[in-house]
Computed example of a mutant assay.
Amino acid sequence: MLKANPRVLLVNDDGIDGPGLVMLEKIVRTFTDDVWVVAPDEERSGAGHSLATTLPIRVRQRDERHFAIKGTPTDCALLGIYELIEGKKPDILISGINRGPNLAEDITYSGTAAAAMEGALLGIPAIALSQYFRPPAPVQWDTAEKYAGEVIEKLLKLEWTPGLFVNVNFPGCPADEVTGMRVTTQGQRPPGAFIPERRVDVRHFPYYWIKIMLPEGGHAPGNDLQAMLDKEVSITPMQLDMTCRPAIPALEKLFG
């Protein structure tokens, strides 16, 4: 359980001016005044858990507690925790609110989730927040706005264990249609969520966009994908240990 008036580090992957981050800061300030924002200077969606190891990371300080970083969300978490926050480290890291879902295998690509992972790696309780939507439907920011504060305040009471971070997704419906909150497992969609799409420029050279498909399927009782269908807020406990324990006996027969 975290103390009253915790020190909070806010990070995202949509950029420091992203509407979800602006909203999140307002929500967090309702229960603490010790808030620091360290976020990319522009959108870094899909950055995953990447680091800027071959380029210098530039920092632009906007005011005493707001920093725009030319780097990835993970870079932002590292700089916030080690360099930019004065005095003691943050009590909790909150990443988001992402414009779009971070469900199922999205976690492996997500800069939003990666910032929370980095917090967990460094022993800091961490939460990733995302607002589900599918274009051309509008982003239902009112849903995240209504439920994010309640989710965060409850999670502040959690007895955090090492290596834990919590992945939260708000359903893509108006706030008054939300049916509840559900603690979920991570789902897995069928293959084909991201497909290269070939195009040709004016000089007849090919180039590619990665097209986001989000194929239907992978829903199962109790998982995060099903929660979105049921218009529930999905709260998924995640861990850094990715060991596939059921495979150990078979591997031990081969290598033991």
Results as ranks from 00 to 15, higher is better:
Tyr207Gly: 09
Arg189Trp: 03
Arg182Ile: 09
Arg199Gly: 02
Ile195Val: 15
Arg198Cys: 12
Ala193Ser: 14
Pro190Thr: 01
Phe205Glu: 15
Met181Glu: 13
Gly187Gln: 09
Gln186Lys: 11
Thr179Tyr: 03
Asp201Val: 01
Glu197Lys: 14
Pro190His: 00
Ile195Leu: 09
Phe205Cys: 08
Phe205Trp: 09
Pro206Ser: 11
Gly192Cys: 10
Val183Glu: 13
Thr185Gln: 08
Gly187Tyr: 07
Thr185Ala: 13
Ile195Thr: 13
Arg198Ile: 08
His204Ser: 14
Val178Cys: 01
Pro206Asn: 08
Val202Tyr: 10
Ala193Gln: 11
Met181Cys: 01
Thr185Gly: 07
Arg203Asp: 12
Phe205His: 12
Thr185Phe: 00
Val202Gly: 09
Thr179Glu: 13
Arg198Asn: 06
Pro191Gln: 02
Ala193Pro: 04
Phe194Ile: 15
Glu177Cys: 11
Pro191Ile: 08
Glu197Pro: 04
Pro191Phe: 06
Pro196Arg: 05
Arg199Lys: 14
Thr179Ser: 03
Arg189Thr: 10
Met181Asp: 00
Pro206Val: 10
Arg189Val: 10
Gln188Ile: 11
Thr184Trp: 05
Pro196Ser: 04
His204Asp: 15
Arg189His: 02
Glu177Ile: 14
Arg199Ala: 11
Ile195Lys: 12
Pro206Met: 05
Arg198Val: 08
Arg203Cys: 06
Val202Asn: 13
Gln188Thr: 14
Asp201Ser: 08
Gly180Phe: 03
Met181Ser: 07
His204Cys: 12
Thr184Tyr: 05
Ile195Met: 09
Arg199Phe: 13
Phe205Tyr: 12
Arg199Ser: 12
Gly192Ile: 02
Arg189Lys: 07
Tyr207Asp: 08
Pro190Asp: 03
Thr179Cys: 08
Met181Thr: 14
Gln186His: 01
Pro191Ala: 05
Arg182Trp: 04
Phe194Gly: 10
Tyr207Glu: 10
Phe194Cys: 10
His204Asn: 15
Asp201Leu: 06
Pro190Cys: 03
Ala193Leu: 06
Glu197Cys: 13
Val178Met: 04
Arg182Tyr: 01
Arg199Glu: 11
Gln188Asn: 13
Glu197Ser: 14
His204Thr: 15
Asp201Met: 02
Glu197Gln: 13
Gly187Asp: 09
Arg203Pro: 00
Gly180Gln: 07
Val200Gln: 11
Pro196Ile: 06
Ala193Asp: 15
Gln188Leu: 13
Thr185Cys: 01
Arg182Pro: 02
Phe194Leu: 15
Val202Arg: 13
Ala193Tyr: 00
Gln186Pro: 06
Val202Phe: 08
Gly187Ala: 07
Val202Pro: 05
Glu177Phe: 05
Pro191Trp: 01
Ile195Gly: 05
Gly180His: 02
Thr179Pro: 00
Val178Asn: 03
